Amino acid sequence: MRAEVCLFTSLDLYILCILLLFPAVCFGLQHNDSPLCRTCEGQVQNGSSVWTFCLTAGRIQGRCCFQGNVGDEDSIVGLDLSNCSLSHVEDLHDALAANIIDLSNNPIVNLSDSTFQGFKHLTHLMLPIKLECPGGNTSWDTVEVKHNTRLCEGQRNTCNQTGQMSWNCPENSHCMPYGPGFFECSCLHDFHGYKCLRQGHFPMLEVMAILAGATVIISTLLWLTQRRKVKST
């Protein structure tokens, strides 16, 4: 009897967790505990460009600063990984919303072309002097070298700031900037799907309802099945 009560409680908690976590997974709720902010010890360095930016843009936590107050949407808007003894950089995509990133004073030999793909809001980037600005000099308004740091400032619109249809984009879409040297084809209003060939709004509510219903049904079946096994024993 005691084992049955414990299993019943565990299953109830499991189902409850699924139902509570489902909206968070589907709607992409974020938290501010990104491992990126703990890449190296300490906080955003006092007096640095990132520190100056963070004083007016948000709150500092570790090597990051977040926009707004605690409880607001947690978007990393500033990232200071300078002087962290980094020899390579693999994934910075927790900081996609960043306006300023500092990777200077690190023994980084090279960066992948796709490292800053999707960084549409990035306006200030500090790199070790041996590295080139992502997307090349033509992707930035200003590129200069100060001391041992390469400064890339003012990310340019790869679509030449026209926002008009690009010959690289299919019909019913237009060119949108997608990071230094990158662009993406965004479907025009009322079009979606492969190559923007489908017209009409994407059935988001219907899809979410189906996913929610499937989750509830599977959880209920699991609970009933496990409970019957306990009773039979």
Rank of each mutant, 00 (worst) to 15 (best):
C196S: 10
C185R: 13
P180H: 08
E184W: 01
E171W: 01
C196R: 05
G181R: 07
W167H: 10
Y178D: 15
P177R: 13
H189E: 15
H192E: 00
S186D: 04
E171Q: 13
L188A: 03
N172Q: 14
H189V: 02
C187G: 12
P170E: 07
S173K: 05
E184N: 11
D190E: 15
Y178P: 02
C196V: 07
H189R: 10
C196K: 01
C196P: 05
M176A: 12
G193A: 15
P180C: 11
C196L: 08
Y194K: 13
E171M: 05
P180I: 02
N172G: 07
F183G: 04
N172F: 10
F191G: 00
C187N: 06
K195V: 01
L188G: 00
P177L: 05
L188R: 11
E171Y: 10
E171D: 15
Y194T: 08
P170L: 09
F191I: 02
H192F: 13
K195L: 12
C185F: 09
C169W: 10
H189C: 05
P177W: 11
P180W: 07
C187A: 03
L188C: 05
P180A: 13
H192Y: 12
E171A: 06
C196N: 04
P177F: 05
H189Q: 09
C169A: 13
D190C: 07
L188E: 11
P180L: 08
M176C: 03
H189T: 04
